[in-house]
């Protein structure tokens, strides 16, 4: 691998990345975490994603810690959504997409041959950019995941629990039979979150979950994320730096780089505790981006 022709900075060659988090193996229980006790649920080591012959993101290494919110930020085209989708194998659905490196979940490589992507997605749920409830009733939307996963009996209780967990129960408890599409955008997104947590996943991936919502709905979702992080591990991709600063414990900053062949690739620049990224970033490019000086 030739040395990447990067501007003067801490990143000099692929795949090393400037990381000021504990460097001695991310699989160790974090020492330097906000609550001091987070273990690593998922780990990315030198992950690159290709679409056909095009390398969209190269050499990403970072941990995802339990019950923490990890934010991925960066300019458009920096590959943050691509990386997010590689965490539960949603990339499989895109023809020609290929992931190299290793993504482990509780120590298991989720791209190993004997791993079933269905089982991966069952444990690592996803909330999408645009609220996408099924054209079914509110109740059936939430019950859908339970039914397909063969959870029988007390469906009502599970549905109520999930809707309560998504802070939607009080608003919809009297109209569970109406279509999920009849809700407002913010409610639809919380319905999608309820649908996701109904199957009790381990990790929830959120791909810009608030980009289609107004500020009030956004703040509701942000509060909800904080609540959810008590029980779930959350990874969120966001365009909104304030949002990352507000809700996340860890932040990964991605950027798009042009390589020696004038091809753009996404790169992870820096991964650290959110407080440090926003106050004392280790990389000039991170600082430029968060202070708005990014080109």
């Amino acid at each position: 691998m030739p040395t990447a022709n990067t501007p003067a900075g801490t990143v000099t060659s692929h795949p090393s990345v400037s990381v000021s988090a504990p460097s001695a193996g991310w699989n160790d229980a974090g020492v330097d975490t906000p609550d001091g006790a987070a273990t690593t649920v998922m780990n990315l080591a030198d992950v690159s994603v290709h679409y056909g012959s095009y390398e969209a993101v190269r050499g990403t290494s970072m941990p995802i810690r339990q019950n923490q919110i990890t934010a991925m930020i960066g300019p458009s085209g920096c590959g943050k959504s691509t990386i997010l989708r590689s965490l539960n194998r949603m990339n499989d659905l895109i023809a020609g997409a290929r992931v190299t490196g290793s993504v482990t979940y509780h120590g298991q490589d989720i791209y190993a041959k004997d791993v079933d992507p269905i089982q991966v997605r069952r444990r690592i749920g996803m909330v999408f950019q645009k609220p996408n409830p099924f054209p079914k009733s509110i109740y059936d939307n939430v019950a859908y995941g339970l039914r397909i996963n063969g959870i029988k009996g007390k469906l009502d209780d599970h549905v109520e629990e999930a809707l309560t967990g998504a802070a939607l129960w009080d608003e919809v408890k009297d109209k569970l039979k109406t279509s999920g599409l009849a809700l407002s955008g913010g409610q639809q997104q919380r319905l999608c979150i309820a649908r996701t947590i109904a199957v009790k996943p381990d990790v929830i991936l959120m791909d810009e979950p608030c980009s289609a919502l107004d500020p009030i709905a956004t703040s509701k979702i942000e509060d909800l994320m904080y609540e959810l992080s008590k029980s779930y591990t959350i990874v969120i991709v966001t365009h909104n730096m304030q949002q990352a600063a507000r809700v996340s414990h860890y932040t990964a900053f991605f950027t798009a780089e042009v390589d020696e062949k004038q091809v753009r690739h996404g790169r992870l620049v820096e991964f650290d505790q959110t407080s440090r990224i926003f106050t004392n970033p280790g990389d000039k490019r991170t600082e430029d981006y968060i202070t708005g000086r990014f080109g």
Partner: peptide, 15 residues
């Protein structure tokens, strides 16, 4: 049928 619906279902672990 929007692709988002298929993805939502697959992301819930549906075959």
């Amino acid at each position: 049928v929007p692709d988002e619906l298929r993805q939502a279902s697959l992301a819930l672990g549906a075959r």
